[in-house]
Simulated scan of single mutants.
Amino acid sequence: MLKIIDKYILRRYLATFSVMLLLFIPIGIVIDVSEKVNRMIEKKVPFGEILLYYVDFTIYFANLLFPIFLFLSVIWFTSKLANNTEIIAILSSGISYKRFLRPYFIGATIVSLFTLIMGFFLVPKASKGFNDFRYQYLKGSSAQSRETNDIFRQISPNEVIYISNYNYLSETGFNFIYEKFEGNVLKERIQANRIKYDKKKKVYKLYNYKKRTIGELDDKLISINEYSKKFNFEPEDLTPVVYIAETMTLGELFDFIDKEKKKGNANINTYLVVLHKKFSLPVSAFILTIIAVSVSSMKRRGGMGVNLAIGICIAFTFVFFDKVFGTLAEKSSIPPVVAVWLPNFVFGILAFYLLRNAKR
Rank of each mutant, 00 (worst) to 15 (best):
S127C: 00
I68W: 12
S333M: 13
L288Q: 05
K180A: 08
V33D: 09
V55T: 13
L52M: 14
K277V: 01
C313V: 15
G305R: 14
L2P: 06
T172D: 12
Y197I: 07
G264A: 00
K229S: 14
L354R: 02
N131G: 03
E147G: 03
G28D: 02
K128Y: 02
S223V: 05
T16G: 08
V273W: 01
L2T: 13
A266F: 04
K200D: 11
L350D: 08
I117Q: 09
I291W: 02
E234L: 09
F231P: 08
P240L: 07
I68Y: 14
L72Q: 08
N184G: 01
I41V: 06
F174C: 08
L186N: 03
R189Y: 12
T239H: 02
G28R: 02
F345T: 15
F256R: 02
L328E: 06
A339T: 11
I90D: 03
I95W: 01
F231E: 00
I268M: 04
N149H: 10
T148W: 05
A89Y: 07
K210P: 10
I312L: 14
T172R: 10
L70W: 12
N232H: 13
G311I: 00
K98N: 07
K139I: 03
W76L: 08
D322E: 09
Y197K: 05
K229L: 15
A192C: 12
I314F: 05
K7P: 01
L116H: 04
P46N: 14
A292C: 13
K359G: 09
I31H: 13
I5A: 00
P343S: 13
G119M: 01
